[in-house]
C-alpha cells in the first residue's frame, strides 16, 4: 500500500503544475483540471492514511513521517474547504495551498516509513488529541502564511476589498491555529504529568511550542488591540510560520529531548 503514498505525492505534484499553468495561462479548463487532480490526490492520501492506521492498529501520528503526511493532508483539506466556501473570491487559494501540501508530502517522503510499534510513553488517551490538534494547528498556520505571502505579492496590484479579505482570512486561520496550539500545549501538560510526573520539563519541543504560542499571541494582540492590519500582519504571519517549521523540523533534527521518539 506504500504505493498509494507515492501516487498521492505524484498527483499532488501534477496538481501543483496544473495550478501554476492555469494561473500563468489564465485557462479555466486547466484550473478545473487542477482542482480535480487535487481531489484525486486527497482521496488517495486519505485512503493511504486510513490503511496505515489499520495496519498499525493505532492513529498514524506516531513519528515524523506520519505527522508530516498528516500535516500535508490537513493543508490540502483546509485548502479545499476554504476554496469551496469562497470559490468566487479565492480561486488563488489552490495555487498556494496545493504546492504547500506537495512540499510537506515531499518532506514526509524523505522520512523513514516503517510502521513501528507504539512506544509505551505514547500509549495514552491523550495521544490523538495532542498530536491531532498539533497537525490542525500547524496546517492553519501554514495556510495563514501562504495567504499572507500572497498578500505581500499582490499588495500593489489588487483592490482594497480583496486585500482586506486576505488579511481577514489569514487572521481567522491564525486564531483557529492558536486555539489548536493551546489545546496541544494543555493536553501535552496533562499527558506529561501522567507519563513523566511533571507538567512541564522545559524539553526543547515544549519550549519551542511555547515560543511559537507567544509569537502568535503577540500577533493576535497587535491585531485585536493595536489594530495592526495589512502588510505588517502579513509579514508577522510569515515570520511566525518560520518558528512553526523550526518547531516541527528543526527541534527534531537539531535538539534531543523527551519528544525524540525514534
Amino acid at each position: 500500500m506504500n504505493v498509494l503514498f507515492t501516487i498521492s505525492l505524484m498527483v499532488y505534484f501534477a496538481a501543483t503544475l496544473l495550478c501554476f499553468a492555469g494561473t500563468a495561462f489564465r485557462k479555466d479548463g486547466v484550473k478545473k483540471a487542477a482542482l480535480l487532480v487535487l481531489l484525486i490526490a486527497v482521496a488517495a492520501h486519505i485512503i493511504y492514511i486510513v490503511w496505515r492506521g489499520i495496519a498499525a492498529h493505532r492513529l498514524p501520528l506516531a513519528n515524523q513521517f506520519e505527522f508530516a503526511t498528516m500535516f500535508a493532508l490537513m493543508v490540502a483539506i483546509f485548502t479545499l474547504v476554504l476554496y469551496y466556501r469562497n470559490r468566487t473570491r479565492m480561486e488563488w487559494l489552490l495555487v498556494f495551498g496545493t504546492p504547500l501540501a506537495f512540499l510537506l508530502q515531499s518532506y514526509a517522503a524523505l522520512q523513514p516509513k516503517e510502521i513501528t510499534e507504539l512506544m509505551p510513553a505514547l500509549k495514552s488517551a491523550w495521544f490523538g488529541l495532542h498530536i491531532g490538534s498539533a497537525a490542525l494547528s500547524y496546517s492553519a498556520f501554514a495556510l495563514a502564511a501562504a495567504v499572507s505571502l500572497r498578500y505581500l505579492i499582490v499588495e500593489k496590484k489588487t483592490d482594497e476589498k480583496h486585500l482586506t479579505q486576505m488579511d481577514y482570512l489569514s487572521y481567522r486561520l491564525i486564531s483557529f491555529g492558536f486555539l489548536m496550539l493551546s489545546i496541544v500545549i494543555f493536553s501535552g501538560c496533562i499527558w506529561a504529568e501522567q507519563a513523566w510526573s511533571t507538567f512541564w520539563s522545559w524539553d526543547p519541543k515544549e519550549t519551542w511550542a511555547l515560543i511559537t504560542w507567544i509569537v502568535y499571541a503577540i500577533y493576535l494582540h497587535q491585531r485585536l488591540r493595536l489594530k495592526w492590519r495589512g502588510r505588517k500582519m502579513a509579514l508577522l504571519a510569515c515570520v511566525s510560520f518560520v518558528l512553526v517549521i523550526f518547531t516541527f523540523v528543526g527541534v527534531n533534527t537539531l535538539m534531543s529531548g523527551l519528544h525524540s521518539y525514534k
Binding site: 522545559w202 519550549t207 519551542w208 511555547l210 515560543i211
Partner: peptide, 9 residues
Amino acid sequence: IAILCIAAT
C-alpha cells in the same frame, strides 16, 4: 520570555 527560551535551547 521568548528570547530567553530561545537562548536556553
